[in-house]
Amino acid sequence: MSKSSITKLLDAKGVRHDGRKFNELRPVTMKVGVLENADGSAYIEFGKNKIMAAVYGPREVHPKHMSVPDRSVLRCRYHMTPFSTDTRKNPAPSRREIEISKVIREGLEPALILTDYPRTAIEVYLEVLQSDGGSRCASITAASLALADAGINMRDLVVGCAAGKIEGRVVVDLDDVEDKEGEGDMPMAILPNLGQVTLLQLDGRFSRKEFDEAFKLAKDGCMKVYDIQRKALMEKYFGAEETGEQ
């Protein structure tokens, strides 16, 4: 990791090292339907995070004995390219990536109606082309867009956003520097219409009160990302001018 030259994560006025306020997200853009071969795909830029998501399926399960008689098997692989980090990342899946793949899959599953596709597999591939803190939240957001683009029956979209703690202050959406030098990170993903929390992780130290603040900031952050997410989906299927929300 390159040693950052930043000494203060928050200045006297409460402005963060990249100029954001405590409740301000990094710039977010999303695009649906970006890969030719995949059944569904999406691309997200969340600050410096650049992530490609693709969905294949429902399709035959390989190996066959893994198929389930009453529903589809959801599979998910979160992977970082070797050039996505400051120092080259070994391309083999790390324990971190295996764990993140699992929590993303489990965060997506409540949104999907898997019983509509018995004896099939739905595969979600997430490739982090560049990472900058908060990549699992950006990934799950892109994954749910790709699933919608693939035409999988869904109860809701899934949208992710983290909150964390820097210099004793709870803020939304940590970037890489804030994540490494801050005191805590809490990634979260929700089903915005069903009011369900489907991904929640926490590390660092939070008091009960700080947890409440972090939860609220992450939830509000999710709702802001959800707006952009919905527009991206509308843009592909109805064209930009018909979203009516410009």
Partner: peptide
């Protein structure tokens, strides 16, 4: 008794906000 230091939601399924607060 005043500091939460780690958390992890697991398994395919979700919690409502009230349930998360109850869990904390």
């Amino acid at each position: 008794k005043n500091t939460i230091c780690a958390g992890q939601k697991g398994n395919p399924g979700g919690f409502t906000e009230e349930q998360v607060m109850l869990a904390i």
